[in-house]
Design a protein around this nucleic acid. Structure first.
Lengths: 350, 350
DNA sequence: CTATATTACTAACACGCGTTACTAACGCGT
DNA sequence: ACGCGTTAGTAACGCGTGTTAGTAATATAG
């Protein structure tokens, strides 16, 4: 029973109607009158034949692919340990399913072929796009704006006309650093989550600086190091920091993943966490509460972020034009053991 | 310059040839003679107009969507912390890109709507499918076999006719348990990675049993607990185990992620790792070497797995019929600190 | 110089569906 | 009987491409 091409014509034949009628019934075209009996006959015929419309033909005729694209702009190394991605995917797929659409995923290396997503658009393979990790120096982005292609950024592009959804990175970092300041620390190092060309990294660093400033603590550039997404880089940068001879009693690490590496490095230097070195991360990855010591961090609403982005995109697809272009979600401090707050009897929660 | 539908007709007009010629040139149809000058003319026209073929029209005409589907059969809870997924994705997308194709991703809940992937197939939205986490009680799978749809399983389905790529779970677990046995442990608990309805979980448990048997150590059912993919469940099961009063000095945890939770629970019971409790995981996730203590585990070639699966699928798509239907990849013990080997001066490596 | 093969292309159909414009039948009031 | 609105349905075109069968021009063979 292999090659069993069931077309709408087959359904029409079986129901004794025209192909047009089949299309009208199955698509539930509004404002069209079809008698209930034939309607039922068509539905039953389709059911019996196990009819599934050809996606390509539908797309060609209707000019809608019913697919949205998730484009991740990452270097290959980042992707393998990007748990944030799985959370995004989780939220995304649920929303996409709810809308009866599909998700095409693509990962592109920022160094090469920056325009693959333009291809997806031009080939009309996707109806809309969710772009994660947009870079400000990516000129292909303008092409999206030019043709008014439904686009939602996951992340920010300051000053651009794109719709975007992001967390308040600055506030999150500010929160983390302030927490350490409140615990009495004055020499607080900072390890970024990524190079500063990433706006998120930049914002987090600036939130950290701002917190110091507010507290009247001088910003000391040698206490800042730049990691690159993964634990390895965190491990290196913390080693680097500890061996630099700088004096500091705490560190804000702008990514949980990077913090894992930093913790390992700190341990290897014979320092106890939090007694000798207080640490605060940022992300609240699913395992951050299980590592040792449980990591104090800032929780990002990852899944919600994806949900909101998708829902926003769907509104764009339906022709709406939401006036709020940039949506910024709040974050939340999660106090665990790595910051030492519990030792001081401060915020003895969770 | 918004709606700029560039069709092959436009290219043909500009190059002064027929649409057919354009198609022949652009698709590099073999065995067809086109003079070099017109060929260049067509290519240049296409370039100048920035022509990108309509994917839907191509798919309709050629009966190939140039898209392969990655279908993950998971419960929603699993997905958010599934780092293995990101590694899979990494390997997958690279291979897919190399073949000039795209990847459609879908996550389906094993409880509901098991047949969404059949929809993808019937709608001809995808040319082939990579199915991760196949369940033996999924009857929809037969439909794939019936129509001979290009399919590769990521995981195993014993006794089925599917092409599949998997790691040798039994051997991996055997290896892990044997390592603990060699270190002198005789009372070794086991926390599975998942319920036994998952063949991988079943295989791992049986590898563990087999290792005990080989060593002449009796299998003690009360020492076995069943986790469910995430650290939370590992935390619970280890607590459960420790509070059961059972006597054991080591545990094989059949998933690194689950092991993270188990470590936390062990710590909270005031036990030192590895001195009071030796632990070995399985997966070698990217951060397992950074947690504390660095986790001794079994490395699975995740990215390679995905690569091989994709390459196998491409061979199927090209009509080949590789005779080896089941590919099993080997694993490797990675000795770190959690097992205590280094304390004993055993395998003082890495 | 004619018959045939080769080269370089094109006309026309097919893919399966959405959709517009149109028709046939019917009811209803006058 | 006629006109008119409404209901129920259909014929036919278009979406943009791949591909087969065919043609005109040129080269080759006899």
């Amino acid at each position: 029973m292999a090659v069993n091409r069931v077309t709408s014509q087959d359904v029409a034949d079986r129901a004794g109607v025209s192909r047009t009628t089949v299309s009208l019934v199955l698509n539930n075209v509004p404002g069209i009158q079809i008698s209930d009996t034939t309607r039922q006959r068509v539905l039953q015929a389709a059911e019996e034949l196990n009819y599934v419309p050809d996606a390509a033909a539908q797309a060609l005729a209707s000019r809608q692919s019913q697919v949205i694209g998730l484009v991740l702009i990452r270097t290959p190394d980042q992707i393998a340990s990007d748990i944030f991605l799985t959370q995004t995917l989780d939220g995304l797929i649920k929303s996409v399913h709810k809308a009866g659409m599909r998700l095409l995923i693509d990962i592109i290396d920022p160094e090469h072929q920056e325009e693959t997503y333009l291809h997806l658009m031009r080939a009309k393979r996707i109806d809309g796009i969710i772009l994660s990790g947009p870079r400000s120096n990516d000129e292909s982005l303008n092409a999206l704006l030019d043709v008014d292609f439904p686009t939602v950024l996951l992340g920010q592009l300051p000053g651009s006309q794109f719709y975007s959804v992001d967390v308040d990175n600055r506030a999150a970092a500010h929160n983390a650093a302030t927490h350490l300041l409140n615990l009495g620390h004055r020499r607080i190092a900072c390890i970024t989550n990524a190079p500063l060309s990433y706006t998120a990294a930049n914002d987090r660093l600036s939130g950290y600086r701002q917190a110091l400033e507010t507290a009247g603590v001088p910003f000391d550039p040698p206490l800042v190091r730049f990691a690159e997404f993964d634990p390895e880089s965190g491990y290196e940068q913390m080693n680097n920091l500890l061996e630099s001879g700088s004096d500091f009693s705490a560190a804000f690490v702008a990514s949980d993943l990077v913090a894992y590496g930093a913790i390992a490095a700190t341990r290897e230097h014979g320092l106890r966490i939090p007694e000798d070195m207080a640490l605060v991360g940022l992300d609240d990855l699913p395992f951050s509460r299980f590592i040792s010591p449980p990591l104090t961090t800032i929780r990002l609403p990852a899944i919600e972020l994806a949900r909101i982005a998708t829902d926003l995109l769907f509104r764009l697809l339906q022709g709406e034009q939401p006036e709020q272009k940039q949506i910024i979600l709040g974050t939340e401090l999660v106090v665990r053991d790595s910051c030492g707050a519990k030792l001081h009897g401060y915020a003895p929660h969770q």
